[in-house]
Design a protein around this nucleic acid. Sequence first.
DNA 1: CCCGGACAAGTGGCCCAGCCACTACACCAC
DNA 2: GTGGTGTAGTGGCTGGGCCACTTGTCCGGG
Lengths: 252, 252
Amino acid sequence: MSDALRPMARPRLYEQVIDRLREYVAQARLGAGDKLPAERDLAQQLGVSRTSVKQAIVVLQVQGLVEARHGGGTYLVGHTLDAEPVEQLVERRQRLPDVLDAREAVETKLAELAAQRRTKVDLDAISAALDHMREEIAAGSYGVEGDRRFHAAVTAAARSDILAEFMNSIAERITESRTESLRQPGRPSRSLTQHVAILDAISLGDGRRAATAMRRHLRTVAKVRLLSWNPDDEDDGRRDEDDGGAGGDARE
Amino acid sequence: MSDALRPMARPRLYEQVIDRLREYVAQARLGAGDKLPAERDLAQQLGVSRTSVKQAIVVLQVQGLVEARHGGGTYLVGHTLDAEPVEQLVERRQRLPDVLDAREAVETKLAELAAQRRTKVDLDAISAALDHMREEIAAGSYGVEGDRRFHAAVTAAARSDILAEFMNSIAERITESRTESLRQPGRPSRSLTQHVAILDAISLGDGRRAATAMRRHLRTVAKVRLLSWNPDDEDDGRRDEDDGGAGGDARE
DNA sequence: CCCGGACAAGTGGCCCAGCCACTACACCAC
DNA sequence: GTGGTGTAGTGGCTGGGCCACTTGTCCGGG
């Protein structure tokens, strides 16, 4: 095979620095939160300029492997500097309907968690979002912003970084459907009603009911969106049984 | 809400440069392979040092969005500088307990979708994974690989790129818990039994039952893991009601 | 005793000016 | 046409420097 004739690797200095840092972290038995040597020290010990060290650190930073505090040093985030495998497989597009499935999966869980973990502050925030949406609708608007705030507040109340980040990553695509959905006749007020139901369940600490209410809401939203594609479909609150989440008991 | 009191954003200069570059690429209608302005020019026009421009380019480089040829200029790889959402997800770290919540949220949905969309080929794949696990167990092994294959096969049958990518992004952390879980006495055979139940439901096209079975399975797994942390907790198959997924009707 | 301000050291953010290495391209000789 | 040469353009990397922020320490007022 002509494998030997593949393009020559032209390693950048900062890449070599990254490798060395990886090695160092492993050998030095550093763990999460541990402090890395100062940039100036690293530069001197590695025999490279501080700029190159900085470039390496910038890379590790955007990969979330390291955290640099201005004036406070650079710290390990995880127990290793190894990049996530996912990072390597890039370039793949998703079909749009996926968003709906994903949103139903994640947001019902978020509602359930929110019911279990919400604090007074969370409830106030959600309630404020509803007020905002109410005002928007009263003013003749669609209530897009209020809707966004509501879902954001619920997400915040669930206290799951990982799910919140996932929601964040599909936020843009959700926004597209949000506007389209709220443009439907009578939709804003209906969404508002459903929001209220979700808040009630969360307020009561009833995770199961919160999940159910959220699912019903999302199905409504989805249905609207589907309408503009294929006018069949029915099913709304009928088969919404419940979510399998743990019962209503609030956290400890 | 106390949203106003969240940590102040402390934007790094190179991040702002990246944003500007994104903007520029969009406005200038640049496409794949097009050449970016020279670093020196960018620095001057943006009013920042060349160092900062370089840091920005380094970031875009490791993200595979741009290619810098020593002495030959910097070129666009894709038609945009937007990072893939999954990639952004990975650029941050999450707490560990989140994984359990996330997995329950996503995998139950995957099971439901799999029941609705699975083809004969999918069922064969899942079945093969079970066979493999059975053999492993018979050979005295824990069945780790078979377990992995099973969940992978179910994920594949669900045909949701977005959820599959999400699973992929937390795959490593799942792996950690998998081994630990299967080390529990009697656990491999019990997991196998639960897998069979999941396959049955998927095979029947019963999304609801598939979701329920998957949830029960994940609760079992989670319980094991929790045991090594805090020896309280009970609840296994008791309150596992069912998932709110659509009924059993297979797609179309 | 505790709180809060002042101070100094440590450290990251950013910049400047410059040299080197490599690429691209035009030109020239064969 | 082929291949060498020269030159301008451009990225890679350096070293030094200034500024801003964080942290810890010390000290005086309450």
